[in-house]
Amino acid sequence: MKMYLSSIFADPERTARLIDIAQSSFLPLLKGAIFYTIPLTIITFIVGMVLAIVTALARISHVRIFQIIARIYVSAIRGTPLLVQLFIIFYGLPTLGIIIDSYLAAVIGFSLSVGAYTSEIIRAAILSTPKGQWEAGYSIGMSYSQVLRRIILPQAARVSLPPLSNSFISLVKDTSLASLVLVSEMFRKAQEIAASNYEFLLVYSEAALIYWVICFILSVIQQMLEKKLDRYV
Protein backbone atom coordinates (compact mmCIF):
# COMPACT_ATOMS: atom_id res chain seq x y z
CA MET A 1 0.00 0.00 0.00
CA LYS A 2 2.67 2.41 1.12
CA MET A 3 4.87 1.31 -1.72
CA TYR A 4 2.10 1.76 -4.20
CA LEU A 5 1.30 5.25 -2.99
CA SER A 6 4.91 6.32 -2.81
CA SER A 7 5.54 4.90 -6.26
CA ILE A 8 2.78 7.14 -7.56
CA PHE A 9 3.82 10.33 -5.91
CA ALA A 10 7.57 9.97 -5.84
CA ASP A 11 7.84 9.42 -9.52
CA PRO A 12 6.36 12.28 -11.57
CA GLU A 13 6.48 10.22 -14.74
CA ARG A 14 4.40 7.44 -13.20
CA THR A 15 1.96 9.99 -11.79
CA ALA A 16 1.48 11.43 -15.24
CA ARG A 17 0.98 7.96 -16.73
CA LEU A 18 -1.67 7.09 -14.17
CA ILE A 19 -3.54 10.33 -14.71
CA ASP A 20 -3.37 9.68 -18.40
CA ILE A 21 -4.75 6.14 -18.01
CA ALA A 22 -7.46 7.31 -15.66
CA GLN A 23 -8.54 9.92 -18.16
CA SER A 24 -8.33 7.78 -21.26
CA SER A 25 -10.15 4.84 -19.67
CA PHE A 26 -12.94 6.96 -18.28
CA LEU A 27 -14.72 7.44 -21.58
CA PRO A 28 -14.69 3.76 -22.63
CA LEU A 29 -15.92 2.77 -19.18
CA LEU A 30 -18.66 5.36 -19.29
CA LYS A 31 -19.64 4.14 -22.74
CA GLY A 32 -19.77 0.59 -21.42
CA ALA A 33 -22.07 1.82 -18.67
CA ILE A 34 -24.28 3.92 -20.93
CA PHE A 35 -24.54 1.55 -23.88
CA TYR A 36 -24.49 -1.79 -22.09
CA THR A 37 -24.78 -1.79 -18.29
CA ILE A 38 -27.71 0.63 -18.05
CA PRO A 39 -29.77 -0.65 -20.99
CA LEU A 40 -29.11 -4.24 -19.94
CA THR A 41 -30.35 -3.40 -16.45
CA ILE A 42 -33.45 -1.60 -17.69
CA ILE A 43 -34.44 -4.18 -20.27
CA THR A 44 -33.94 -7.13 -17.96
CA PHE A 45 -35.78 -5.40 -15.17
CA ILE A 46 -38.79 -4.73 -17.36
CA VAL A 47 -38.88 -8.27 -18.74
CA GLY A 48 -38.19 -9.61 -15.27
CA MET A 49 -41.08 -7.63 -13.76
CA VAL A 50 -43.48 -8.99 -16.35
CA LEU A 51 -42.29 -12.51 -15.53
CA ALA A 52 -42.55 -11.72 -11.83
CA ILE A 53 -46.15 -10.51 -12.08
CA VAL A 54 -47.16 -13.54 -14.14
CA THR A 55 -45.39 -15.84 -11.69
CA ALA A 56 -46.94 -14.15 -8.66
CA LEU A 57 -50.41 -14.44 -10.22
CA ALA A 58 -49.78 -18.08 -11.04
CA ARG A 59 -48.75 -18.72 -7.43
CA ILE A 60 -51.91 -17.15 -6.02
CA SER A 61 -54.22 -18.60 -8.67
CA HIS A 62 -56.43 -21.53 -7.86
CA VAL A 63 -55.18 -23.53 -10.82
CA ARG A 64 -52.93 -26.26 -9.46
CA ILE A 65 -50.75 -26.65 -12.55
CA PHE A 66 -49.97 -22.90 -12.69
CA GLN A 67 -48.98 -22.99 -9.03
CA ILE A 68 -46.69 -25.93 -9.59
CA ILE A 69 -44.96 -24.47 -12.65
CA ALA A 70 -44.41 -21.18 -10.84
CA ARG A 71 -43.01 -22.92 -7.78
CA ILE A 72 -40.58 -25.01 -9.79
CA TYR A 73 -39.37 -21.98 -11.70
CA VAL A 74 -38.78 -19.91 -8.57
CA SER A 75 -37.14 -22.79 -6.76
CA ALA A 76 -34.81 -23.64 -9.66
CA ILE A 77 -33.66 -20.07 -10.15
CA ARG A 78 -33.19 -19.39 -6.46
CA GLY A 79 -31.43 -22.67 -5.94
CA THR A 80 -28.72 -22.20 -8.55
CA PRO A 81 -26.03 -19.54 -8.95
CA LEU A 82 -26.74 -16.80 -11.45
CA LEU A 83 -23.31 -17.28 -13.02
CA VAL A 84 -24.04 -20.95 -13.62
CA GLN A 85 -27.36 -20.04 -15.25
CA LEU A 86 -25.62 -17.58 -17.55
CA PHE A 87 -23.04 -20.20 -18.50
CA ILE A 88 -25.71 -22.76 -19.27
CA ILE A 89 -27.51 -20.32 -21.55
CA PHE A 90 -24.46 -18.97 -23.33
CA TYR A 91 -21.97 -21.83 -23.34
CA GLY A 92 -24.28 -24.77 -22.73
CA LEU A 93 -27.21 -24.31 -25.08
CA PRO A 94 -25.07 -24.24 -28.26
CA THR A 95 -24.47 -27.96 -27.59
CA LEU A 96 -28.17 -28.42 -28.37
CA GLY A 97 -27.79 -26.28 -31.44
CA ILE A 98 -29.32 -23.25 -29.73
CA ILE A 99 -26.89 -20.44 -30.30
CA ILE A 100 -27.68 -17.23 -28.54
CA ASP A 101 -25.79 -13.99 -28.93
CA SER A 102 -24.05 -12.93 -25.72
CA TYR A 103 -26.19 -9.87 -25.08
CA LEU A 104 -29.41 -11.81 -25.54
CA ALA A 105 -28.07 -14.59 -23.33
CA ALA A 106 -27.44 -12.03 -20.61
CA VAL A 107 -30.92 -10.54 -21.04
CA ILE A 108 -32.50 -13.99 -20.73
CA GLY A 109 -30.40 -15.03 -17.76
CA PHE A 110 -30.89 -11.85 -15.77
CA SER A 111 -34.60 -11.61 -16.60
CA LEU A 112 -35.23 -15.13 -15.38
CA SER A 113 -33.38 -14.31 -12.20
CA VAL A 114 -35.17 -11.00 -11.59
CA GLY A 115 -38.49 -12.65 -12.40
CA ALA A 116 -38.03 -15.38 -9.82
CA TYR A 117 -36.73 -13.21 -7.00
CA THR A 118 -39.15 -10.33 -7.40
CA SER A 119 -42.17 -12.59 -7.90
CA GLU A 120 -42.02 -13.27 -4.18
CA ILE A 121 -42.03 -9.53 -3.47
CA ILE A 122 -44.99 -8.97 -5.77
CA ARG A 123 -46.87 -11.95 -4.41
CA ALA A 124 -46.50 -10.69 -0.86
CA ALA A 125 -47.58 -7.20 -1.92
CA ILE A 126 -50.68 -8.49 -3.71
CA LEU A 127 -51.61 -10.63 -0.73
CA SER A 128 -51.14 -7.67 1.60
CA THR A 129 -53.83 -5.71 -0.22
CA PRO A 130 -57.04 -6.12 1.78
CA LYS A 131 -59.65 -8.50 0.39
CA GLY A 132 -62.18 -5.65 0.60
CA GLN A 133 -60.36 -3.93 -2.27
CA TRP A 134 -61.08 -6.85 -4.59
CA GLU A 135 -64.66 -6.93 -3.43
CA ALA A 136 -65.17 -3.20 -3.86
CA GLY A 137 -63.85 -3.52 -7.41
CA TYR A 138 -66.06 -6.48 -8.21
CA SER A 139 -69.07 -4.78 -6.64
CA ILE A 140 -68.88 -1.92 -9.14
CA GLY A 141 -68.75 -4.48 -11.93
CA MET A 142 -65.04 -4.66 -12.63
CA SER A 143 -63.51 -7.85 -14.00
CA TYR A 144 -60.60 -9.73 -12.41
CA SER A 145 -58.07 -8.10 -14.71
CA GLN A 146 -59.55 -4.64 -14.25
CA VAL A 147 -59.42 -4.93 -10.47
CA LEU A 148 -55.91 -6.30 -10.69
CA ARG A 149 -54.56 -3.58 -12.97
CA ARG A 150 -56.39 -0.57 -11.59
CA ILE A 151 -56.87 -1.33 -7.92
CA ILE A 152 -54.54 -4.02 -6.64
CA LEU A 153 -51.27 -3.56 -8.54
CA PRO A 154 -51.04 0.20 -7.90
CA GLN A 155 -51.38 -0.44 -4.18
CA ALA A 156 -49.02 -3.39 -4.34
CA ALA A 157 -46.53 -1.15 -6.16
CA ARG A 158 -46.38 1.19 -3.21
CA VAL A 159 -45.76 -1.62 -0.76
CA SER A 160 -43.17 -3.28 -2.94
CA LEU A 161 -41.32 -0.17 -4.05
CA PRO A 162 -38.53 -0.38 -1.43
CA PRO A 163 -37.73 -4.06 -1.99
CA LEU A 164 -38.05 -3.68 -5.77
CA SER A 165 -35.66 -0.74 -5.71
CA ASN A 166 -33.19 -2.91 -3.87
CA SER A 167 -33.53 -5.58 -6.54
CA PHE A 168 -33.00 -3.00 -9.24
CA ILE A 169 -29.86 -1.68 -7.58
CA SER A 170 -28.54 -5.22 -7.10
CA LEU A 171 -29.22 -5.88 -10.76
CA VAL A 172 -27.05 -2.92 -11.82
CA LYS A 173 -24.16 -4.55 -10.01
CA ASP A 174 -25.00 -8.09 -11.08
CA THR A 175 -24.79 -7.09 -14.74
CA SER A 176 -21.01 -7.14 -14.22
CA LEU A 177 -21.35 -10.94 -14.42
CA ALA A 178 -22.29 -10.49 -18.07
CA SER A 179 -18.60 -9.79 -18.68
CA LEU A 180 -18.10 -13.54 -18.28
CA VAL A 181 -20.41 -14.27 -21.18
CA LEU A 182 -18.55 -11.70 -23.26
CA VAL A 183 -20.98 -8.78 -23.17
CA SER A 184 -18.90 -5.65 -23.50
CA GLU A 185 -20.51 -3.92 -20.56
CA MET A 186 -18.57 -1.66 -18.26
CA PHE A 187 -16.74 -4.29 -16.27
CA ARG A 188 -15.61 -6.16 -19.35
CA LYS A 189 -14.30 -2.89 -20.73
CA ALA A 190 -12.44 -2.42 -17.46
CA GLN A 191 -10.93 -5.89 -17.76
CA GLU A 192 -9.78 -5.20 -21.30
CA ILE A 193 -8.25 -1.86 -20.40
CA ALA A 194 -6.54 -3.24 -17.32
CA ALA A 195 -5.18 -6.20 -19.26
CA SER A 196 -3.47 -3.85 -21.67
CA ASN A 197 -1.84 -1.56 -19.12
CA TYR A 198 -1.67 -3.71 -15.94
CA GLU A 199 -3.10 -0.89 -13.79
CA PHE A 200 -5.72 -3.16 -12.24
CA LEU A 201 -6.26 -1.19 -9.05
CA LEU A 202 -6.77 2.07 -10.84
CA VAL A 203 -9.05 0.82 -13.59
CA TYR A 204 -11.19 -1.44 -11.43
CA SER A 205 -11.54 1.31 -8.84
CA GLU A 206 -12.67 3.65 -11.54
CA ALA A 207 -15.31 1.13 -12.63
CA ALA A 208 -16.37 0.69 -9.00
CA LEU A 209 -16.76 4.42 -8.67
CA ILE A 210 -19.04 4.57 -11.70
CA TYR A 211 -21.20 1.72 -10.30
CA TRP A 212 -21.38 3.58 -7.04
CA VAL A 213 -22.47 6.83 -8.68
CA ILE A 214 -25.16 5.03 -10.69
CA CYS A 215 -26.48 3.26 -7.59
CA PHE A 216 -26.37 6.47 -5.61
CA ILE A 217 -28.46 8.28 -8.22
CA LEU A 218 -30.90 5.36 -8.23
CA SER A 219 -31.35 5.47 -4.48
CA VAL A 220 -32.08 9.20 -4.68
CA ILE A 221 -34.72 8.49 -7.33
CA GLN A 222 -36.12 5.74 -5.11
CA GLN A 223 -36.54 8.17 -2.23
CA MET A 224 -38.26 10.70 -4.47
CA LEU A 225 -40.67 8.07 -5.77
CA GLU A 226 -41.48 6.88 -2.28
CA LYS A 227 -42.31 10.42 -1.21
CA LYS A 228 -44.49 10.91 -4.24
CA LEU A 229 -46.43 7.70 -3.63
CA ASP A 230 -46.74 8.43 0.08
CA ARG A 231 -49.61 10.82 -0.41
CA TYR A 232 -52.09 7.94 -0.54
CA VAL A 233 -51.09 6.12 2.57
Binding site: G132, Q133, E135, A136, S139, S143, I151, P154, Q155, V233
Partner: peptide
Protein backbone atom coordinates in the same frame (compact mmCIF):
# COMPACT_ATOMS: atom_id res chain seq x y z
CA UNK B 1 -72.85 -12.78 -13.17
CA UNK B 2 -71.13 -9.62 -14.39
CA UNK B 3 -74.38 -8.31 -15.88
CA UNK B 4 -76.31 -9.21 -12.73
CA UNK B 5 -73.81 -7.53 -10.48
CA UNK B 6 -74.38 -4.24 -12.21
CA UNK B 7 -77.97 -4.22 -11.00
CA UNK B 8 -76.84 -3.91 -7.40
CA UNK B 9 -74.74 -1.33 -5.61
CA UNK B 10 -72.93 -2.45 -2.48
CA UNK B 11 -71.97 -0.32 0.50
CA UNK B 12 -69.53 -2.00 2.85
CA UNK B 13 -69.17 -1.75 6.58
CA UNK B 14 -65.50 -0.81 6.20
CA UNK B 15 -66.10 1.51 3.20
CA UNK B 16 -63.40 -0.17 1.08
CA UNK B 17 -62.61 3.00 -0.84
CA UNK B 18 -59.67 2.81 -3.22
CA UNK B 19 -56.94 4.52 -1.19
CA UNK B 20 -54.85 5.56 -4.20
Amino acid sequence: IAAFRRLTGMVFQSYNLFPH
